Computed example of a mutant assay.
Amino acid sequence: MPFIKLTSLTTVALIAFAANSVLGRMALAEADIDPGNFTLLRLISGALSLILISLLVQREPLTHIVRSGKWPTSMALLVYAVAFSYGYVSLDTATGALILFTAVQLTMHFVSYLKGQRFSAMEGAGLATAFTGFLILIIPNLQLGATMLGVCLMSLSGIAWGAYTLLGKDAVKPTLLTTGNFIRAAILALPLLFVSLPFEEVSQQGILLAIASGTLASGGGYALWYLVLPKLSTSQAAVAQLLVPALAAFGGVIFVNDTLSTILIMSLLVIISGILMVIAAKPNNSKRP
């Protein structure tokens, strides 16, 4: 895949990830919809949109679509989505996204370490720089009142998303696999009906936000992410996602009336610097003994 195309598709996927944080916070902050119904609608609408993409664009037979996907990957997707929704009840847009993708980084790099991967000096410096950007923003936000339950739930969501990313790294047909994973995750999510509000009590705005999250930000975004994922190294895939919290933070400023602060701008600049260092680094393919 040409570099410009890869960069463009990766950027669109990251914007979709950030949109999920903004849409989720918009829906849940004002109690337009409860976390259980938001998760269900998000997964079901995402599955339906991906089925249409697989049928009409990818020309996949319906039997192949139904049989695609893997249960372990689908379970990781479900855990991510459930913890994400319940975590955002008590976290603002920027803090939630920061915790989420910090956990993603820790998960992916920890797995790489367990597999014996060694990082070049430039990659290590880039990671350290990017994490410094995280700390610049996350520590003041936590001191301003983010609840520990929200922090734990969003951390769990990030661990699950890291697992989901790693499990899809070698996908041969990424769109088909993503479709199957969403179908299975939606099925696994059905018990949420028993702990969610009656559907008639959910606002129309909340329903629309959940569907937008499912069809556009989740279905389309995840399909793109699985498409570019095999072309990225584990380090590049992990660190590229560090841009998402900054995008989500600015989305929160625009759509959820979050405050644009000097700390937010500093964090963004530091994170981008770290990303550029990792992307520019020569990959170190050696293993530790």
Rank of each mutant, 00 (worst) to 15 (best):
A121W: 14
L127Y: 15
D34H: 06
A29G: 13
A18Q: 04
T132H: 09
S45K: 04
L14Y: 14
R42D: 01
V66R: 13
Y226T: 07
T129F: 15
S45W: 04
V172E: 08
L48C: 09
A238E: 03
K287H: 07
A280R: 15
R42E: 01
L167G: 12
F119L: 13
G221P: 06
S286Q: 15
L242F: 10
S68P: 06
V244G: 01
S213M: 08
G87C: 01
G46Q: 02
S261P: 10
T93P: 00
P283F: 02
L43Q: 03
L232V: 02
H109N: 07
L269V: 05
L167D: 08
V79F: 10
N37A: 05
S85L: 03
A246I: 01
Q105V: 06
V270D: 02
V12S: 08
A121Y: 13
N181V: 01
L227I: 14
T179Y: 06
L264P: 01
K282V: 15
I254P: 03
H109I: 11
V111P: 04
L177H: 12
F17C: 09
G219N: 02
K5A: 10
A240M: 11
V82K: 10
S49Y: 13
W225G: 05
I272G: 03
M148Q: 05
L167S: 11
G221S: 06
L232T: 00
L62H: 10
L167R: 08
A212T: 07
A121C: 07
G150H: 09
T107V: 00
I272N: 03
V66N: 11
Q236P: 06
H64N: 11
A31K: 15
V244W: 02
A19T: 14
L40S: 05
T234P: 04
K5G: 09
A97I: 00
L268D: 01
M122K: 14
K173C: 12
G162K: 03
P289Q: 15
L229F: 07
Q143D: 13
S233N: 08
F38D: 05
Q105T: 06
E60R: 11
L55Y: 11
S218A: 09
V12I: 15
V278P: 00
V22A: 00
G133V: 00
M277H: 13
P198W: 01
L50T: 02
R67H: 14
Q105K: 11
M108H: 03
N181I: 09
A237L: 04
V278R: 05
G206H: 02
R184K: 14
M277R: 13
V202T: 07
A238N: 06
V111L: 10
W71G: 12
S54W: 12
G220F: 09
A16L: 05
L216N: 02
A280K: 15
T259Q: 12
G150Q: 06
L197N: 13
L269M: 11
V239Y: 09
